Amino acid sequence: MTNLFILQLLNGAQLGVLLFLIAAGLTLVFGIMDVINLAHGVLYMIGAYLIATFAGLTGSFWLGLLLMFPAALAVGLVIERLVIRPLYARSHLDQVLATFGLVMIVNEGVKIIWGPSPLSVPMPDLLSGSIALIGPLQYPVYRLAIIAAGLAVAAGLYVVINHTRIGMLLRAGATNRDMVSVLGVNIRRLYSLVFALGAVLACFAGAIVAPILSVDTGMGESVLILTFVVVVIGGIGSIRGAFLGALLVAIVDTLGKTFGPILLRFVMEPAAAGQTGRMLAPMLIYILMAAILFARPQGLFGPKPS
């Protein structure tokens, strides 16, 4: 049981860093630009398709990953200029409808370009295999590398946001967008930077998870709902909140799905416990969100309402 707990805790940490990479950009886009972007999940999907394409063309996962970054940056800048920028002065309903339409367009475009069949990305040889943790417990090296990469990005974002001028502008923009604009900051350039950064982070998450998941057109929607829960729990505009919220959501979700049916067996028949546990497990993250919002309506690290 201890080994199972440690294994699922690591799986939760891996899911958590992926959610953080997606949620970090989403919370900045909403916190600074005040734009609700339902298409953020397709950027995660695009990152997976980009790495599949570049890795296939070059024959190397690492070269494919290197080429993915400028391509993701270009995709983010194009979407911001053509779709997001005209929505700045529009209502949230308009933003929701426009970005939902973008999801449909991108999904169909991906099917036209890459086809409807799922793609696969070979795992790099350097990170293949498993490593011994405790006793007989083995864990895939690549999944540990995902956790390490996510933590490295989180540390990098912490340094950038808390110890650089760009980070100062991002924090100020998340707190008071109008004041930043009045002080002479090129607000359009700041918005483009924020959206492009979010796009690159989401594409990076899709790229690094591609070797362990099938790359298909539905992968963006499945992760978007969890990402919005992370943003709400962490607090709008807070990178620290996105990180902690992502880990909380991922670990609660992973442990709930694994141990919920096991715990219910103490009070129910095994078959009924398994069925009930699978039904109740997805509710846990929403119960967690409700509890946190009851105690802190602004989220864990969101700005307090004035």
Rank of each mutant, 00 (worst) to 15 (best):
Ile262Val: 14
Ala145Tyr: 03
Val153Cys: 05
Arg165Val: 15
Pro282Phe: 10
Leu87Ala: 06
Val249Thr: 00
Met279Trp: 12
Val209Lys: 05
Phe61Leu: 09
Leu157His: 00
Gly245Tyr: 00
Gly12Phe: 02
Val185Arg: 00
His92Glu: 13
Ile212Asn: 03
Ser222Gly: 12
Leu244Asp: 01
Val75Pro: 00
Arg177His: 12
Gly76Gln: 00
Ala145Lys: 00
Pro136Thr: 06
Val223Ala: 02
His163Lys: 13
Met268Gly: 02
Ile239Arg: 03
Phe20Trp: 04
Ala13Cys: 10
Pro122Leu: 10
Phe301Trp: 08
Phe266Cys: 10
Leu255Gln: 07
Ala13Tyr: 06
Ile187Met: 08
Gly256Phe: 11
Met1Asn: 14
Ala205Leu: 12
Arg165Thr: 14
Ala207Lys: 04
Gly109His: 12
Arg278Gly: 14
Ala207Asn: 10
His92Ile: 14
Ala55Val: 07
Val252Asn: 02
Ile262Cys: 00
Arg240Asp: 12
Ala132Asn: 09
Ala174Lys: 03
Val83Ala: 13
Leu93Trp: 03
Ala148Lys: 01
Phe54Trp: 08
Gly101Ser: 04
Tyr142Ile: 07
Leu63His: 04
Leu284Thr: 11
Pro122Ala: 14
Trp62Pro: 06
Gly302Thr: 01
Thr227Glu: 01
Ile131Tyr: 10
Ala52Trp: 06
Asn176Pro: 05
Thr254Cys: 09
His92Met: 15
Gln138Asp: 10
Ala281Phe: 00
Val17Phe: 03
Pro124Lys: 04
Val194Cys: 04
Met279Asn: 12
Thr258Ile: 12
Ile131Ala: 14
Gly220Pro: 03
Gly56Cys: 08
Val182Thr: 08
Arg278Asp: 15
Ile32Lys: 02
Pro261Ser: 09
Ser130His: 11
Ser306Cys: 08
Leu4Trp: 13
Leu65Tyr: 09
Tyr191Ile: 15
Leu102Lys: 07
Leu102Thr: 05
Ala174Tyr: 08
Gly101Asn: 06
Ala155Leu: 09
Val194Ala: 02
Leu73Asn: 06
Leu119Thr: 11
His40Arg: 07
Gly206His: 07
Pro116Ser: 08
Ser222Met: 12
Gly16Ile: 02
Gly31Leu: 08
Ala23Gln: 03
Leu190Ala: 09
Phe228Leu: 09
Val194Arg: 00
Gly167Arg: 11
Leu127Glu: 08
Ile32Asn: 04
Ile146Gly: 00
Met279Leu: 15
Phe243Cys: 04
